[in-house]
Nucleic acid binder design. Structure first.
Lengths: 356, 356
DNA sequence: GTGAAAGCGCTAACAA
DNA sequence: TTGTTAGCGCTTTCAC
């Protein structure tokens, strides 16, 4: 280790690790050239077994670890895809990211996860970071970007929107939100409901699709005149106001289709507070089939999305674009399924009765 | 742009972005040296306003973006802290990460999030990636590492375990899990319960602390002879078996303290299936105060942890260690609080009655 | 205030 | 099969 003394001393005042052994160190110790070490580290087949072993041994003894930034710089490739998550608190997004990561790993890609924390501004900064870091592609898991912004982005870097609606001019992977909403309405209509209201999810593309599906579903069921959309949101707390509105009219609807499970849970709370029994006096359908909908005490009828498959497909799409250089716009739409649990049943016959 | 033609052409076959403008390009266009561009990009005060503007304009026109790997290599610092999350599906962890990220950002640090996906092997690989990437510190959010492994890690890199128990030989930030468990027991004891069982959380350090707190809480309440721990887990599905065991004995306990909210939700499900009304026939307390415990239909009495503060504190701790070079072992323990909702009440008086 | 020049640790021709 | 060499894009002395 004598040969490293000088460097070690010169960095004595530095607080961060500068003492990492380099390829040079390994080469010296193994009695070979730097290039040979590089070949070994990159598993090149044309290295003699003898030298290979010598190099690996030296590397192990020194605790050598390749320097990723240096490697990325030299290669002019990062082998990384950026994943921008709208917010990490939503378990639904977490599952999608798991899928992306799994597929990326299977293809020797790393994933750089950045968290939008529910703010558009942070998404912009995140993309900037991605670009500086040199990610080769970007997956946007539930984005708040506008179509325009995405349009600009896709010129620079292959990107795909996952679970964020299909109305963009970039590639998307998602569930057929519109069909999902139609399934929900259809299920309720089949049970005999006609006055079905929708609690919408705000201004996201996903919300728009589900809202659209609600409308077309109502039309398909011949219930056009009963279309009724209330402002909701994507959080549990967003439901209360809309529910109050709904209950304030002279003859409230008999069923509600909520933008997602969280909103449905909030609706359930408020209905409960208002003394409206679910489902006997009011049926309720959510969306996403997150684990909370399966909780027996909610037991929410909802629409399932194949999250893991969506994540994997998103990664596949991106990696294909990276390797063939194409920037073709792709639209992958997976099929939603209705999961019938305990919050739906035939409509009440009389007026809305309250238990309190 | 003529001066870049050659490069652009030579990379015509490359599929990944090689065409990024470099500092050289900016320097040429602005009519200055590369060094000057560097100074401007790093907001050095000793650059004339005139040149600064020229450089910024050239950069903007070219769409110049600093190359992060190159910068990290040259600086021999990454200004990044690694965050290893046990799993992204748990909203509790998501909140902690939010806190870390916020604090890091406030200090001009980036965060490299890696996902353990509930597997120890993946954590090991993640740390390897962190080390290769040259993160300056590591936060482990709910780790599966053994004390030994952590011991080895902390030699290389400042690290802190967040929400992962306090029994390690590395710095930790967490809630006083033991006290939290005691609070739970104490609350139940104050309601008059004596036969309080514990559904434990498996082999994690956190689980051990909570289990310990349960035992000491029982002792403090003079209920030592009623101590009863059942194998649980950290997922909803893990509760069923333990609950079945519990109900199979001749006179089941009157209250249950579960490792976390998910497990408590699972317990609630199973109790419900078994026709045991909660809380009248069985009281139940969870841990974490995740949003699911607040859902009115669960309305779970639970122990709150200040997740955001924990995240921020973890980052602060790490950044301090990075800047002063110390590797002092720190132990930050935040106070848990009991949140009383609707799953606890005084014990039933007679034997366990079932509604079905 | 500005520029020249020497690296950072690695890869990738090209020779040998 | 192995070594030599020239960068990758940036920072950072050190002169001027």
């Amino acid at each position: 280790m004598v040969y490293r003394a000088e460097r070690a001393m010169s960095s004595a005042t530095a607080t961060v690790a500068v003492n990492r052994p380099t390829m040079q160190d390994v080469a010296l110790r193994a009695g070979v050239s730097r290039a040979l070490v590089s070949l070994v580290m990159n598993k090149s087949p044309r290295v003699s077994d003898q030298k290979r072993r010598a190099v690996l041994r030296a590397a192990a003894e020194l605790g050598y670890r390749p320097n990723l930034p240096a490697r990325q710089l030299a290669r002019r490739r990062t082998h990384t895809i950026g994943v921008l998550v709208d917010n990490l608190r939503n378990p639904f997004f977490g599952e999608v990211v798991d899928g992306i990561e799994a597929e990326a790993a299977d293809n020797d890609y790393s994933v750089l996860i950045l968290n939008g924390r529910r703010e558009a501004q942070r998404e912009i900064e995140a993309v900037e970071t991605f670009l500086q870091a040199g990610v080769e592609a970007i997956a946007l898991v539930g984005t708040r970007f506008s179509a325009d912004e995405l349009d600009r982005l896709r010129v620079t870097t292959p990107c795909v929107v996952v679970a964020g609606g299909a109305s963009y001019s970039v590639s998307t992977v998602g569930t057929d939100d519109r069909l999902g909403a139609e399934l929900a309405v259809q299920h309720l209509a089949a049970l005999g409901h006609s006055r079905i209201s929708h609690l919408d999810g705000g201004r996201s593309a996903t919300a728009e699709q589900r809202s659209r599906g609600y409308r077309s579903g109502m039309k398909l069921a011949g219930l056009e005149q009963f279309i009724d959309v209330r402002g909701g949101g994507d959080q549990e707390a967003d439901a209360a106001e809309a529910i109050d509105e709904l209950l304030a009219v002279s003859d409230p609807p008999t069923a509600i289709f909520a933008f997602n499970d969280l909103l449905a849970a909030g609706a359930l709370n408020r209905l409960d507070e208002a003394g409206v029994p679910v489902p006997s006096a009011m049926s309720l359908v959510g969306f996403d089939n997150t684990f909370i909908s399966a909780l027996r005490h909610l037991s929410l009828t909802t629409i399932n999305q194949p999250t893991l498959a969506m994540g994997r497909l998103a990664a596949t799409t991106l990696l294909a674009q990276v390797s063939d250089g194409s920037r073709e716009l792709q639209r992958h739409t997976l099929q939603p399924e209705i999961v019938v649990r305990s919050t739906t049943c035939p409509p009440r016959t009389g007026p809305l009765t309250r238990t309190r």
